[in-house]
Design a protein around this nucleic acid. Structure first.
Lengths: 225, 225
DNA sequence: CTAATAGTGTCTGTAAGACAGTATCCA
DNA sequence: TGGATACTGTCTTACAGACACTATTAG
């Protein structure tokens, strides 16, 4: 039994305090002119991750090191593509400050779209995107991954804005500051500060060496009934 | 480009206070007579999850409802199978009290093997198994999944034994009891008790409705330096 | 000066770790 | 009665949530 294997990307970033996903408009059938996730076929002798990296740079020109990239899940329902039996390996990419998208070869148009206001998507891409968003939301709790949405140097307020955008929540600035700066390995002070803004200059930080947050930074405190 | 797609299973259970994985001995080349994860090719018009369920029951005769089954990750390095380009979708299955394995059609022999003492495995199965074990260990922290290792009715001590086996750690019985019984939705008392054991009878519990543990049951308290 | 943002300090409730003590079975 | 296991209670410490205050810039 022969399958076609594709790689699809859930690319997320934070623009204007809103979580956004990159969508492309399909130029060819099926689902011609519909919005879809960027992606493409895996080449012979190409590793899955390499294919994802290739798609990432084709879509945004971004380097692999500048973004966080991880495998999300694989989708292979028999009828998901009308042309043939296609199994797609979805990857999740978290990007800092969004560069203007430039259309790739397969895509007529590419655009950052707020996840709160998504159009209908081709194939089962709505489901895949949903899974990617939920993965990102969950990972902010127990991993320092929020820094992947930030530029190389960032302030605590910028980091907090990422959490607020991804979770659609408001966080207490004082408590967040304490949490972010005291959690070992989360952020590293650079000694430098911002300047030119309206208020007191803010310290600039870099992504720390930690791979997990201990203790985690939990979302909604559920009613402890 | 045509790929073959297989499904491989990381099946875990707890036997005699040790975390064990099901391994099969390969009957055909490549890697003939080597240990490997149970798995097989995905059939035409078969969903990936259906293929995993099929393999699960072929190997152990276990019903889908009696176990926890979730997608783990997908592995598709070009040279991972010498025969052809094979992409494998790995699934993680957590099973209660281990039934004696019976060999399937592809497998000459099947055996539960302690994960602390694994043999060399065919293909990249060692890596897949490692990823599965780590996933299970991590999920016990923030999900009520430990109950998947238990029979339908279980005591708090049995549940604690699962944690201790999977984490290779010792937990305080009193504190664990408090944590397990007060975390909302983790376990539900049945009113019934064990009998015939050496000490005081223990209350029997059932898996609760919660899908996440709030707050989580964290592993190793890292040195809060 | 005022407005605005950054950062620090304090109080309080909750929950985890440590550990003592009580309850209920079997032999 | 003794041993073994199940369960409950208390104390201490750590940390999250709430909120008041000080610090440093631009205009």
């Amino acid at each position: 039994m022969a399958f076609a294997v594709t790689v699809d990307l859930v690319m997320l970033t934070v623009r204007q305090d809103a979580l956004c996903a990159l969508l492309v408009r399909r130029a060819i059938p099926p689902y011609e002119s519909a919005w879809a996730l960027p992606g493409g076929f895996v080449r012979e002798d190409e590793d899955l991750t390499d294919a994802a990296v290739r798609e990432l740079s084709e879509e945004t020109g971004i380097q692999r090191e500048a973004a966080h990239l991880e495998q999300l899940a694989t989708y292979g329902t028999p009828a998901r593509d009308p042309r043939a039996r296609v199994v797609t390996v979805a990857y999740l990419a978290l990007l800092p400050a969004a560069p203007t998208p430039k259309a790739g070869t397969d895509a007529a148009e590419a655009e950052w779209c707020r996840v709160a206001d998504l159009p209908a998507l081709a194939f089962d891409h709505a489901r895949i995107l949903e899974d990617g968003i939920e993965r990102a939301r969950a990972k902010l709790e127990y991993s320092p991954l929020a820094t992947a949405f930030c530029p190389p140097q960032f302030t605590i307020a910028e980091l907090r804005a990422v959490y607020e955008a991804v979770w659609s929540a408001t966080l207490d600035p004082r408590n967040f500051h304490r949490k972010a700066t005291t959690t070992p390995g989360f952020v590293v002070p650079t000694g430098r500060s911002t300047t030119g803004d309206r208020g007191r200059p803010a310290q600039l930080f870099t992504k720390g060496p930690a791979t997990v947050l201990h203790p985690p930074l939990l979302r909604a405190t559920p009613p402890t009934t």
